[in-house]
């Protein structure tokens, strides 16, 4: 069986699931420490008022943390190309969803009282026509 398997096209996996990269305990521990430190930085950064940059900072740190989890804990760094494409493409489609949501958000005229009731006259953009009874 073994001799046959070695001549087989799939020989390297005949008796096992194939060769797998096994991460070291030290690497997992380093990733954990990095994740905990970044959590602390997230909390710390939220205490300081950076205005609208607070959201960007929080999301940037979260993206770094997510990348660490995906690359090392989920082992994507050593996964096959097809698995990388399948999983990471979901983030591409997520980006499309966010992009078009953002486009809607920034171009929509809100149906609030202010925007729907005020006319160009209210805005002072045009002068109202003089009333006909002014001649009497």
């Amino acid at each position: 069986m073994t001799a046959h398997a070695h001549s087989d096209h799939h020989s390297h996996g005949a008796l096992q699931m194939g060769h797998h990269h096994v991460s070291s305990s030290q690497q997992f521990l380093s990733v954990l420490v990095a994740l905990l430190v970044l959590t602390g930085i997230t909390v710390g950064a939220s205490r300081i008022d950076f205005g609208s940059a607070n959201m960007l900072i929080a999301m940037a740190i979260a993206c770094i943390k997510a990348s660490l989890v995906i690359a090392f804990f989920m082992h994507v760094k050593w996964d096959t190309a097809i698995n990388k494409i399948v999983f990471l493409s979901s983030f591409l489609f997520l980006a499309l969803l966010f992009l078009f949501t953002l486009v809607d958000l920034t171009t929509r005229r809100w149906d609030s009282y202010v925007n729907t009731i005020r006319t160009p006259v209210d805005h002072g953009w045009v002068q109202p026509a003089p009333k006909p009874d002014a001649h009497h």
Binding site: L15, M17, D79, V86, S90
Partner: peptide, 20 residues
């Protein structure tokens, strides 16, 4: 046919699920 095929098929299917 092989353990590698079994492993890769299951793994690909699971990554698809995680994408959803």
């Amino acid at each position: 046919d092989t353990p590698v095929q079994e492993f890769q098929a299951a793994k690909l299917g699971f990554w698809l699920f995680l994408a959803t």
